[in-house]
Write a protein that binds this DNA or RNA. Sequence first.
DNA 1: CTCCTAAATGCGAATGATTATCATTTACAA
DNA 2: TTGTAAATGATAATCATTCGCATTTAGGAG
Lengths: 132, 132
Amino acid sequence: MEATAKHFRKRDAILTCLRSTKVHPSADWIYEKLKAEYSDISLATVYRNLARFKERGEIVSLGTVNGIERFDGNTKPHVHFICTDCSGVLDLHGVAVPEELSKTVSGAGQVSSCQLTFTGKCNQCINKEETA
Amino acid sequence: MEATAKHFRKRDAILTCLRSTKVHPSADWIYEKLKAEYSDISLATVYRNLARFKERGEIVSLGTVNGIERFDGNTKPHVHFICTDCSGVLDLHGVAVPEELSKTVSGAGQVSSCQLTFTGKCNQCINKEETA
DNA sequence: CTCCTAAATGCGAATGATTATCATTTACAA
DNA sequence: TTGTAAATGATAATCATTCGCATTTAGGAG
């Protein structure tokens, strides 16, 4: 009797994969990554489990970047930077949504979450362009 | 010689439609709305012109809600509330992204825009549920 | 006025991410 | 063993969005 039942190997692998990367990946990115270890994994399984994790609040969706949904295994609220050039997503540590803000919103309804995202060109893409 | 050339009537109508509603509509919503006045308008024209406006910075995209892209004719930065029940989008006046925040982000790259969105259940949906 | 070109449009097909379907496999307990 | 419910793989279906192309339009040059 294993701690990790074979039945959930892939499910666990999906969550672990998402949690151990900083790229804020898409479903397909996770799928491609896991194919190395699980050659028979199905893309549908990745989508299904991501939806399940999301429902349960175990992961978070960042919304779509270029029409593709991106996920984050870190559910602690934090700020993101999305690069319009490379579609990369970065965590912005040291930036936080002011606590007061969230409280001011009560006029509209019950707030369950909040997302602050900056968009622009990341340093890596800026450098790449200068070099070119 | 008319001020509004016939050639651009539909284009103008799309922009006007978007600017004169508070619902932060989808392309299809605008299409359905404009069909009343322009029975022969094509959904592709709505998409094409929205893309054009977006490129030129004349409108703004809020990203997707339930897989459908939503637009805002108000390009002045402001905060949104998205209802998970009815998929409605509200402007949150009186809430603003602190100026300092945007400046702190320079470590990641050149910021061109920023978006703050609260998610939850709007008052209307809360009331609806209580009544039911 | 006529001819020409570039832009705008309508229509319908194509695309592509996501979801649904369904048969099969798995875990686990009676 | 056997039954049941969940998980999965493969693939078809869905549906918002985009593309291709023929047609229409505006507006200028001749």
